[in-house]
Simulated assay, not measured.
Amino acid sequence: MKKGPIGIFDSGYGGLTVMKEIVSTMPEYDYIYLGDNARTPYGTRSFETIYEYTLECVKFLFDQGCHLVILACNTASAKALRTIQQRDLPGIDPDRRILGVIRPTAEMIGKISKSGHVGVLGTSGTIQSDSYVIEIEKQTPGIAVYQHACPMWVPLVENGEYEGDGADYFIQKDLNAILNQSEKVDTLLLGCTHYPLLLSKIQQFLPKHIQIISQGKVVADSLKDYLSRHPEMVEKCSIGGTQTFLTTDSTTNFDQHAVHFFGSEVRSRFVHI
């Protein structure tokens, strides 16, 4: 068996906020990031299309030598992960693993909330799937989960408007919408990997007593715990401290945007899926 990098997949740039925390937590491993920028956004597409695109990208990362792939995309985790794990992975290679971002985040939010009332903000696809409602209630029975889709937040981030005054209206409007569902909400989950870039704006319009959970650190800690419990998977992951970035669209655009999500400059390579 040849060791390989840990694969990290997202439909675009957002997964880089997760990769940033994973690399910070476990810098010794090799990582390969794939952004399917040519076909983004996934959030507005059908279940069948999201499943098809995600499976193609997972297979591509397997072909690059990855034994472990992280779906650092809420939409893909919500609409494709379970089907791929149960239906496709046994036939591809039952010894490989695919993990998502929803379960570790759902496990955490129930432990943090004191009131038992939590809010979830995400893309339309993620919210419509009810994946967070199902998973949070599974992890913490009896907890009340309120959801709200924020369709303008990702465009604000990807067009570089997340720090401008133009973002204020939409952020305040969406925060009011979810908080109006219950005055007992004390914990708010940012259920999209783009949203950490809006954190300072969100904090500006959010009551001080409400805690905000971003996924990057939660997923990184969960992955570290997973590897500690699965030494057989550690043996399949190469150690070298390298990071490779791949995109299905313009490398120039990817590199220009990626610096804001990853926190440092990257040099990507174009690939065709």
Rank of each mutant, 00 (worst) to 15 (best):
L189S: 04
I136T: 13
L197E: 02
V218M: 07
G110N: 12
V145K: 08
G119H: 10
A220D: 15
F170V: 01
K208E: 15
L190E: 00
K217A: 08
H209T: 05
D130C: 15
L198K: 02
L175Y: 01
A106L: 06
L199Q: 11
L175V: 00
Y195K: 03
G166S: 12
K173M: 11
A106D: 05
I143H: 05
T123W: 07
D174R: 01
P196S: 02
P155L: 07
L189A: 03
K138H: 12
T126H: 06
Y162P: 01
S124A: 14
A149F: 07
H194S: 11
V157L: 15
L223A: 14
I178V: 15
Q211A: 10
K111C: 14
I202V: 14
S131D: 11
T126I: 09
K114I: 03
G166P: 11
E137L: 06
S222F: 09
S124V: 15
I171H: 02
I213W: 09
K201V: 14
I112C: 05
A177L: 15
E107Q: 10
Y146R: 11
S115K: 03
S222E: 04
A220I: 09
C192V: 10
S131L: 08
F170G: 04
A106W: 02
E183A: 05
L197C: 05
V218I: 13
H117D: 15
K224P: 12
E183V: 05
E183D: 10
L199W: 08
G191C: 10
K201N: 13
A144D: 13
H117W: 10
E135V: 05
K173N: 14
P151H: 06
S124L: 15
F205N: 01
D186A: 02
S214Y: 01
Y146C: 11
V185F: 05
G216Q: 06
